[in-house]
Amino acid sequence: MSYSAAKNSQMQKKLRQEAKALLEQGKVDCIIGYEPGSLKHATTPLITKDKAATERLVINPFIVNNLSNFLPYTKGRIGIVAKGCDSRSIVSLIQDNKVKREDLFILGVPCSGLIDVSKVEALVGKYRDEIDDISRQGDIITVKVGAAKKEFSLSQVMFDNCLACELPTPAEYDVLLGEPTSPIGAAAESAGKLDELKAMTAAQRWAFWQNEFRRCTRCYACRNVCPACYCKRCFVDETEPQWLAPMPQEPDNLMFQIIRNLHVSGRCTDCGECERTCPVNIPLRALTRDMYDIVDELFEFKSGMDTKTQPLLTAYEVDEAEDLVK
């Protein structure tokens, strides 16, 4: 089904009705969704128990946050808005006993991909707040700056992980807010950075990452927005023993990310939140996506696609890959 603004607003209308009814009927204690952000072309998570607040819920091409991240920290029964990628994280959290399926009411959003505003910024040479309008009709994105109008294709402006999306419509939901959508299917166009890195020698790659991680501030946004990073105490905060220097320096910054990446392997759903939130633009998805592909290649496993498949790290088969450590 191709995207249209009309279909989108229908979904939004349905969402508001459903969410309001859920709270009214006491089926959930709170709703986690999106509302318009305070910045242009942005949304912000809405976590509310207030029926009236459901009128603020939105669905648009800017609903970027993976809201499943809030689940382990939210009490009671929760009505949660979930795109395909979010639903995969939810499934993964259910499998890890971080949240109970019966405590959730999943409001599934058949997703058509999200617009990466930083790509738009680069394309039009303007900052987010200088861009008047970004709209989508079918597979064309129209950007307006003043009187000027430019059109772009999906592969130019969608998030890389959206281009590579394998599950735009949630597989796990209680109500689906619209007609199922199909993947954009432009994975090849999203792998630019990864291909570039793979073409490098190991030494070049090491130099590349060292340079990238030099500007890491250790703000841990990548960790804190990651639904798979739910440890009560992160290894990086340990002091006895202290695994890594607790200060922003190399090679500790890179080591932190490598270890984090290993820790979430088999649970990472390629939602892209780590890369999107990095304030200093470190291309983190090149690491996580590579790990995602390695997991798939070695174990034919993609996390959170359905509730039936056993989580990777809890399953072992005698004949599975033994050349794991290369």
């Binding site: 250790r218 703000c219 841990y220 939130t277």
Partner: peptide
């Protein structure tokens, strides 16, 4: 504070 993810972006920067 409900939607805050407790990262250090707003303080470190």
């Amino acid at each position: 504070s409900a939607k805050c993810v407790s990262c250090g972006v707003c303080t470190l920067l």
